[in-house]
Design a protein around this nucleic acid. Structure first.
Length: 648
DNA sequence: AGCCCGTCGGTTTTT
DNA sequence: CCGACGGGCT
């Protein structure tokens, strides 16, 4: 029986039975357990199209996914299957969705005047300011306070795992237990500062939305009636708050569809709990469960290997993948004498693939941590192999970008203390104390206060003039950026030896700004979805769609696939990182990470590691392959050892 | 109050 | 090996 009659799209023919069932599922909760490469995105895309074909208004569908890019691509595909109505579907990340809802109801959450979203680095800066006032107390105990980044992690962990701050400190940071009072009071004051200065951090976006839905029944009713169908992608990576949010957004018919794979949960460090996926049917009684177990991506030998990696997991997973893609070459595990030989091997294999006609953009090199690729990046540059790198280094946290953005944020929100502080500190002869004094004057008398201060402090003139010019009415964001850059340029040259390179980043940022009509939207996006890719360690130009090799952290490679995948640094102690060795749970997460990496490959999987590396921090020599691969038999994983360059 | 220099510590992944 | 922090000098 074909569905061709009723629908424009022939769902029955274009989908397998399990996918079809998920796409045609009517009312009520639906859990789709979708193994790697089983057509998860396809299923979501077709389901959007099917709902729209059935006359459901696209604007009443909400698709929450991991990145905005992912949801944009899904909706674009749905639109090309059916028609442009599909683009009207609401989509984004939990954080960006929360932001738009909160902006809409800002007076209901105590931010009638609006709010500024701060990223992790801003939040650390604020914690740093607060904790200074407590360092004396710590000293009295002959102790030093935790560094601000540790404090930020502790605060965030408590929220995302939904446990008390005390518990996080006692369980995960026992060395700071005797500073518990100070930590609690820093936390209190951090929250106070955020409230006073109308700052909202990543966690606040979610907790404020939760509070709004809980405490304002009318708002909740309106959201529930607006979004009749809610779909959540990558459900295994949601945390406690996110799963609560979903529960509260469910309408009376419980039209909630979640899609995920418990074997691919890799965000526990951020509070994600893959057991959410297991407990979904308990929270939504009557849930229909559909498993997608046919893998369309990888050839059998790759799937044999990945099944073995995940089979050894302590937690047993709910499915087993199969494929019809027979044949092909065994995955390889290649040991090289040292790191540079690893880079040379990978680079020359890539050049060979390129000669065989494989597009560079269909090849990826994956790694556990951004810095693992440094040596390879140099080798690729030397050989003129173009690449784009995803993940690892964060532009938005580099000093020059933050400096420029601080000036823009002052214009967008005149009482942003963090930004004032930053911009003022860049002025000659202005340090923390003067900045504080000037900020007070400005928040009392407005920007005119600066003009007065210029008489005593001539170096302040440049900033004063620039801000005045930036605040002229009706300026486009890019224009404001230009003025800010003109002011900042001499500071940049003076402070950084590598200013030419940094200037190119800033110019790239101005190009991005040209897309925006409102400065506020630009600033929100830079926090919610900062640019994630780089070329030569520089902010990547907008359109780098050319034929580039992909270098990526495994986390940033989620959901993607390539003809050939290299996984480098599969060295026990690096991957799994020896940091994860002390806890069973985090070791299991490393295993799932290896599973995610290996399942990205369609035809070719090559795993490499340098066979002898001295590790400074532990004072030992690392030489064993990743423990998840070591026990796997030769007939699933071919071994090679490369000792000298002439063996490549 | 600001700036510079020396020391110590700590080290992933991301919204 | 790099960055953050503290202390001392200008």
């Amino acid at each position: 029986m074909s569905t061709a009659g009723k629908y424009k799209i022939d769902y029955r023919r274009q989908l397998n039975p399990a996918q079809y069932e998920a796409v045609m599922h009517g009312q009520g909760p639906l859990l789709v357990i979708a193994g790697a490469g089983s057509g998860k995105t396809r299923t979501l895309t077709y389901r959007v199209a099917r709902l729209v074909e059935d006359g459901i208004a696209a604007s009443s569908i909400l698709l929450l996914s991991f990145t905005r890019k992912a949801s944009r691509e899904m909706l674009a595909r749905a639109a090309s299957l059916l028609d442009r109505r599909c683009r009207e579907v609401g989509g984004g990340t939990f954080h960006s969705f929360a932001n738009s809802v909160l902006r809409c109801w800002k007076d209901r959450i105590g931010f009638a005047e609006g709010f500024t979203i701060i990223d992790r680095a801003d939040s650390e800066d604020l914690i740093g300011m607060v904790s200074k006032t407590h360092s004396a107390a710590a000293k009295a105990k002959l102790k030093r306070l935790p560094r601000k980044s540790t404090l930020a992690t502790i605060f965030s962990r408590a929220i995302n795992k939904h446990v008390d701050l005390e518990d996080v400190v006692c369980r995960e940071y026992p060395q700071f237990v005797n500073l518990l009072d100070e930590i609690l009071s820093i936390h209190h004051e951090y929250r106070e500062q955020k409230r006073i200065h109308r700052l909202v951090d990543y966690d606040d976006l979610l907790t404020l939305l939760l509070k709004l839905l809980r405490e304002c029944p009318d708002v909740r009713r309106e959201i529930v009636t607006t979004y009749r169908h809610v779909m959540v992608d990558e459900y295994q990576d949601t945390n406690y708050i996110q799963s609560r949010l979903i529960t509260l957004m469910a309408n009376p018919e419980n039209n909630i569809m979640v899609v995920g794979d418990d074997a691919q949960s890799i965000y526990a460090f951020r509070g994600a709990n893959f057991k959410n996926i297991i407990s979904f049917p308990e929270r939504f009684p009557g849930t229909r469960i559909i498993k997608l177990e046919e893998n369309y991506r990888s050839i059998q030998p790759i799937l044999d290997l990945t099944n073995r990696i995940i089979e050894q997991a302590e937690e047993k997973f709910s499915k087993r993948l199969f494929t019809r893609r027979k044949g092909g070459r065994l995955p390889q595990l290649v040991a090289t004498a040292d790191e540079h030989l690893q880079s040379m091997f990978v680079a020359s294999e890539i050049a060979r693939l390129q000669r065989r006609g494989v597009a560079l953009s269909d090849v990826a090199v994956l790694f556990r941590a951004g810095f693992h690729a440094f040596d390879l990046e140099m080798e690729l540059t030397r050989r003129n192999l173009p690449f784009v790198k995803y993940g690892g280094f964060k532009f938005m946290e580099s000093a020059h970008i933050k400096d420029l953005l601080a000036h823009l944020r002052i214009v967008a929100s005149a009482n942003d203390r963090l930004s004032w502080y930053r911009a003022l500190n860049l002025v000659d002869r202005v340090g923390p104390a003067t900045a504080e004094k000037l900020f007070r004057a400005v928040s009392r008398d407005g920007i005119q206060a600066l003009e007065g201060a210029c008489k005593k402090l001539p170096s302040l003139g440049g900033l004063t003039e620039a801000l005045a010019a930036m605040q002229a009415d009706g300026l486009a964001p890019a224009k404001i950026g230009e003025i800010a850059l003109r002011h900042y340029l001499p500071i940049l040259r003076q402070r950084f030896d590598d200013h030419p390179k940094r200037l190119r980043d800033l110019e790239q940022l101005l190009t991005i700004m040209e897309r925006y009509d409102r400065l506020e939207d630009f600033l929100d996006d830079m926090v919610l979805e900062p640019p994630a890719s780089s070329v030569n360690n520089q902010l990547a130009p907008e359109d780098h769609r050319g034929d580039n090799l992909v270098l990526s952290t495994i986390h940033s490679a989620k959901g993607l696939e390539w003809h050939t995948v290299f996984i480098i640094w599969a060295l026990d102690g690096r991957f799994p990182s020896f940091h994860s060795l002390d806890s069973g749970d985090s070791l299991e997460e490393e295993r799932r990470l290896m599973y995610v990496a290996a399942t990205r490959a369609r035809e070719n999987l090559i795993i490499t590691f340098p066979a002898q590396v001295y590790d400074r921090s532990s004072g030992t020599v690392l030489y064993r392959p990743c423990r998840f691969l070591e026990p796997i038999a030769e007939n699933y994983l071919e071994r090679r050892y490369i000792e000298r360059a002439d063996q490549i």
